[in-house]
Design a binder for these strands. Structure first.
Length: 509
RNA sequence: GCGCCCAUCGUCUAGCGGUCUAGGACGUCGCCCUUUCACGGCGAAAACAGGGGUUCGAGUCCCCUUGGGCGCGCCA
């Protein structure tokens, strides 16, 4: 199921147990520039906060001519799924956040993690702990009751041989814990958070290996980040305390601690961390809502990061301007209204052909657009492209774009929206004459049909709107659409006249 | 409870001791444009959480309070 990646093999072969002085990539080229990594756990979809973390890692690597690695943290065998892995990779690809090298699967590296734990044990920097789950619970409760942080008390840290023998005799399977420093403090120099200090007495002896011998997350991240040559860790600030504990592992192994940057989480409208109760969504959901990846990227980068008053950044500008030091320490709330506005900007600025293609490519992901996708042929594509200027000005998402394009795909006799039927009924008196004038138009173009309709307005003294509205309803079955002369043009003479004709002989409305 | 982090319009933010009667963007509300709806243009309402310091001078520095967030597993 989960394969051992080439990079993982490579790391085993050449970097263990100690990293070589001049690390190389699989192809033999020397590493240069910073190395970042995005390390999601495949226990759910790639949520929007993870996407932003990936973006920042990607921008940082690009900005400094480095590389971004992708590591799947699948050590939780119960909750990790292949489907989640596929979604993460799919989501990153859709967003255009490419990683360098092969994907590293953390679980595949369990042996190496255990090896490091053994080293630590041998160096007396770790020890076996035989405390039972019940004892641990009790410990935490006592600590809390006494106003202390709920921590492991280190009771097996200096256990005697006799005590160990007794526990073994009882058949207790031990975990391996790190001998963390108990005095002094641990300092994190964080690019975003600044200098953060933790008193070591508040950090306990974390578990490195579970009683079944599998590595914990704490051990695995440190070993993998080290082996993969990660120089800059950029992750959510929910990991800030972990950074201190992980520092202890680095120190115990005598490894360099990578530079850190803990970025604030994205919050929901209520100010709390995005979660299921907010209806937290995977990035695939944003695609399904019709957002453009470049718009989502732009929105995301401006969440908690800014360059003066600037709102819009092309990808190149983003890379050039990105600086971790300008990332804010306070969490930002996710605002759909602004995302939508930004998406609208991107759509209007998009090239018509490119946007048409984007819509077509996205159709399979949009809800209820199967028939539209099925009806697509060269003629429809051409119509879509021709209508695009009028369509894109009226849409903020690809969904709205598809909705606006419905009239192109509608079959006669047209389904009429109630309000549209009213308009047809109200303007019925004008329709026969309009039909006649349009039929007599010397050529079929927006200019020619406009001339015909204006001539009718002049002849009858009606306002243009009195004629255009019923016409719009007859042609599109809706009350809103692009400019009516553009609609006529795109639909073509035959179809236009037929749709108007349907309203005359009562086929519709 | 303990630890850490944060605090400018409803939201995203500019501001890095004087140029702040606090700027921009989204949203909201008007007006204009107009064949609908949009787009676009113009305009309006809207914020320095509170209290102490430091300083000639504080949105900007320090402290406290309050509020919010995150963390505290043999999860990641």
């Amino acid at each position: 199921m989960l394969r051992l990646s080439v990079l993982t093999r490579f790391l085993h072969a050449s970097l263990n147990p100690l990293r070589s002085k001049t690390p190389q990539f699989t192809d033999g080229t020397p590493m240069s520039g910073p190395v970042t990594r995005f390390a999601p756990s495949p226990t759910g979809f790639l949520h929007i906060g993870g996407a932003r973390t990936a973006l920042f890692n990607w921008l940082f690597a690009r900005r400094h001519g480095g590389r971004m690695l992708l590591r799947i943290e699948d050590t939780d065998r119960e909750r990790s799924t292949d489907a989640a892995i596929r979604e993460i990779i799919d989501g990153l690809s859709w967003l255009g956040l490419t990683w360098d090298g092969d994907v590293v699967y953390q679980f595949a590296r369990a042996d190496r993690h255990a090896e490091v734990a053994a080293e630590l044990l041998a160096a007396d920097k770790a020890y076996h702990c035989y405390a039972t789950p019940e004892e641990l619970v009790e410990m935490r409760e006592t600590a809390r009751a006494e106003g202390r942080p709920p921590r492991y008390d280190g009771r097996w840290r200096d256990a005697s041989a006799a005590e160990v023998a007794a526990a073994q005799a009882r058949g207790v399977k031990p975990v391996v814990r790190l001998k963390a420093p108990r005095e002094g403090e641990t300092v994190i120099e964080d690019a975003v958070q600044g200098r953060v200090t933790f008193p070591n007495k508040d950090l306990d002896d974390l578990v490195l290996l579970r009683s079944d011998g599998t590595p914990t997350y704490m051990l695995a991240v440190v070993v993998d980040d080290h082996d993969m040559g990660v120089t800059q860790i950029i992750r959510g600030d929910d990991h800030l305390t972990n950074a201190a504990r992980q520092t202890h592992i680095y120190q115990a192994m005598g490894w360099d601690v990578p530079a850190m940057a803990h970025i604030p989480l994205i919050h929901g409208a209520d100010g709390a961390k995005l979660s299921k109760r907010h209806g937290a969504l995977g990035v695939d959901a944003y695609r399904a809502m019709g957002y453009l990846p470049e718009a989502l990227r732009n929105y995301l980068v401006r969440l908690g990061w800014s360059q003066g008053d600037r709102e819009f950044f092309t990808t190149g500008e983003m890379i050039e301007a990105f600086d971790l030091r300008q990332v804010h320490r306070s969490p930002a709330r996710f605002d759909f209204a602004k995302l939508e506005n930004m998406n609208g900007h991107y759509m209007r600025a998009a090239d018509d052909a490119a946007l048409t293609q984007a819509l077509i490519d996205t159709l399979p992901y949009l809800a209820g657009r199967a028939t539209m996708a099925a009806a697509l042929d060269d003629a429809k594509r051409a119509q879509l492209l021709a209508a695009m200027p009028g369509l894109k000005a009226r849409a903020k998402t690809l969904n709205e774009l598809a909705e606006g394009a419905e009239f192109l795909f509608a079959r006669r006799p047209l389904p009429m929206a109630p309000k549209a039927a009213e308009l047809v009924a109200k303007g019925k008196a004008h329709l026969p004459a309009l039909h006649a004038r349009l039929a007599a138009a010397p050529e079929w173009s927006a200019a020619a049909t406009e001339a015909a309709v204006r001539a009718e307005a002049e002849a009858t003294g009606a306002k243009l709107g009195d004629l255009a509205q019923p016409l719009r309803a007859a042609l599109t079955g809706k009350t809103t659409s692009p400019g009516i002369f553009d609609v006529l043009d795109v639909l073509g003479r035959e179809e236009s006249l037929a749709r108007i004709g349907d309203c005359l002989d009562g086929a519709v409305a």
